[in-house]
Amino acid sequence: MNLPALSTPRLHLRPLALADAPAFAAYHTDPEVARYQSWDVPYSLAKAEALARESEAAPLLGELWATLMLLAGETMLGNLSLHLTGHRTAEVGFTLAREHWGKGYALEGLNALLDWLFTGADLHRVHASLDPRNERSAALLGRAGFRYEGCSVQAYWHRDEWTDDAHYAVLASEWRENKV
């Protein structure tokens, strides 16, 4: 399955490209952006370039995480991440540069991705997980129609501490019902 380019009234979503690497590394290095994320800070340009090369070499969705860049015109806002996890299921994630927080871009991009996943890719279930202290991301998932499924206590080691892992999901049937 090919990773799509998607559009909304304000946004264009397309796969990560090598030219995106400097901006990608810059916002991934912001301590506030990375606070609840799994990567180490600073996020190196070499790491961003390697991810972009991997993305360009393997544009098909598969076992690896895929990255879709969120753009408003020529302005790079952040990215959505996507990982096929099983039969007609996927995990999603999102990262937005701090200067673009609170403007609805992540929700708009996530809704476009969900629309494609449930209609174009015919998925059954999409899930996400996050540190439950990340209240803004939890609220975003709720606005996108995800339901809270529970929390794994002290489930992973992150930034020198055991961290909880909150689980969210939405089924295609729920998404269709809520979309109307």
Rank of each mutant, 00 (worst) to 15 (best):
G150I: 11
V92H: 00
R125P: 08
A72W: 12
E63L: 07
G62T: 14
R147V: 14
L141F: 02
L114Q: 01
H127W: 10
T75A: 14
L51V: 09
Y27A: 04
R35Q: 15
A66W: 08
V33H: 06
E74C: 09
D115G: 11
H28E: 02
L64Q: 14
R35Y: 15
L61A: 08
A112K: 07
H87Q: 14
T85H: 01
E91Q: 02
W162V: 05
E177V: 00
G102T: 10
F94C: 11
D115Q: 13
W39K: 04
A57T: 08
P15E: 08
R88W: 11
A144F: 09
D131W: 02
G78Y: 01
N79A: 15
L71F: 13
L16T: 01
D20F: 01
F118S: 02
P4M: 02
A58P: 09
A72L: 11
A52S: 01
S7Y: 12
N178E: 15
T29R: 03
E149W: 06
P132L: 01
T85Y: 04
D131G: 04
A112F: 02
H167R: 03
A90M: 01
L110V: 08
H158S: 09
Y105F: 15
C151N: 13
P22A: 02
D122K: 04
A50W: 08
A21L: 07
P42S: 05
G145S: 07
Y27F: 15
D115H: 11
L51A: 09
R159M: 05
L61H: 08
T29G: 14
S44G: 15
T119M: 11
H158E: 10
L60N: 13
W65C: 06
A90C: 06
G109L: 00
E135S: 00
A166I: 00
T29D: 14
F24E: 03
A97E: 07
T67K: 04
A46E: 13
L123D: 12
L71D: 13
V41Y: 04
A52H: 05
G86A: 04
W162P: 07
T163R: 03
A23K: 02
D164W: 01
A57L: 08
A144T: 06
Y156K: 02
V170N: 04
R98Y: 00
E108H: 06
A106C: 12
T67Q: 13
L45T: 09
A169V: 11
A17S: 14
P132E: 09
S129T: 10
R143Y: 13
L117N: 05
A139V: 03
L130H: 01
Y148L: 13
G102F: 05
A169E: 03
L68W: 00
H12R: 12
L84A: 12
L71C: 15
E74L: 11
T95Y: 06
Y148K: 03
E54C: 11
A17V: 11
A26H: 03
E99M: 04
Q37I: 07
A169I: 11
E49V: 03
F24Q: 06
S152C: 11
R133E: 15
L6D: 14
V33G: 00
H124R: 02
